[in-house]
Amino acid sequence: MMPHPVVIKIGGALLDDEKAARQLMTRIKTLQQHRAVIVVHGGGPMVETMMTGMGLTSEKVDGLRVTPDAHMPVVCGALAGSANKQLCALAIGAGITPTGLSLMDGNMITCQAIASELGAVGQATPNSSVLLELLIGEQFLPVISSIGCSKNGRLLNINADQAATAVAQLMGAELLFLSNVEGVLDEHGQRLATLDKAQLASLVQTGVITDGMKVKTDAALQAALQLKRPVFIGSWHTDPEALLNATTGTKIQPEATKAGDNS
């Protein structure tokens, strides 16, 4: 029986660290030898750079970028264009055969706008796995940007964490959230191997988890609850297989952890 596929969500900031990006692609190639891999990516820094260059500004509400429809050509160009193709080029450099995609391709993910005040910002729902099954069956690496489309043809900007969760749901996959941090740390700076909802809430209440890490853990917990399986937070500097084996990073559990899991 083949193991579950692995969805690896990476932030656009990886593209600012070419050495780390090349190392990650090399590790993905190794992982592909026995696991199907799918990459889902964002690209916030690239969006910011392109918008600033065009004299455009935007704000965020609860971590979501307010995106007027008039800004979507820029957002699409950054995410589905520049970021996606740079990642595909890095994959080719590692000897991988990538396929650059967005959430709408193959009707894999259906999307709908969340709220009028957010503009062209949507939520993602799993729909059809046909295209991804065909691609991973032929050893391609799908590289999916977080650009979606509504049923009436409106382009939508999807939060990359939520996009990755929807793709993982679609494929019954393991989900890794990779960034430039090694995992969730305690008040002494030590990595916490496993966390559940109650433990995360306690760390937030005591001020141990704040700011960007709270955004990551909130997304990972939401994904774990939706997928009904652990979700992993770790660094793109480490081996994805080590994360899957819980020898590095932090495993976010959808249910209460057993006593001693973090000892």
Rank of each mutant, 00 (worst) to 15 (best):
A91D: 03
E138F: 07
S146R: 11
Q23E: 08
I136Q: 15
G55I: 00
I136L: 08
T165L: 10
G183T: 04
M171E: 09
G207H: 06
L56H: 12
G81P: 04
R191S: 09
N180S: 10
E187G: 07
A164I: 02
A70S: 15
V61F: 12
P73K: 03
P5A: 08
I96Y: 04
L244Y: 00
H34F: 13
N157Y: 08
I144C: 03
V74Y: 06
T26W: 05
N180H: 10
V39I: 15
S102I: 10
T238L: 12
V6N: 04
L56R: 11
G63H: 06
P45V: 01
S263N: 13
G100P: 00
F177A: 06
L244V: 01
V215W: 09
C149H: 11
K60A: 03
V167R: 08
P142G: 01
L225A: 14
K197D: 10
A198Q: 09
C88K: 07
I109H: 00
L101T: 00
A246Q: 14
P45G: 04
T30R: 13
L64G: 04
A163E: 01
K19F: 09
P254N: 09
N159W: 02
G249D: 01
R35N: 05
A91K: 02
P254F: 12
V121F: 05
C111L: 03
T247H: 08
G189V: 00
S145A: 14
L195I: 04
T217V: 15
T110K: 13
A224I: 05
R22Y: 06
T217D: 10
R22W: 02
E241G: 14
L79M: 06
I38C: 14
A223T: 07
A164Y: 02
Q226D: 12
D17H: 15
T110R: 13
G119S: 05
A91I: 01
E138K: 12
A163S: 15
L244W: 03
Q32I: 03
N107R: 12
T247I: 07
A168L: 13
D17Y: 10
Q199E: 12
A70W: 05
M50C: 06
G81A: 03
L101E: 01
Q169I: 03
G234E: 07
D239V: 02
V130H: 11
G100I: 00
L141F: 08
T210V: 09
L225R: 15
T67I: 02
L156C: 04
G106Q: 04
E18D: 15
P98H: 00
I96W: 00
F232C: 09
N159M: 05
L178F: 04
A198E: 13
S82M: 14
A83E: 09
M25A: 12
L101H: 04
C111W: 08
N152K: 14
E182S: 14
D62M: 13
R154P: 05
K228Y: 07
V66N: 07
M2N: 08
A124K: 05
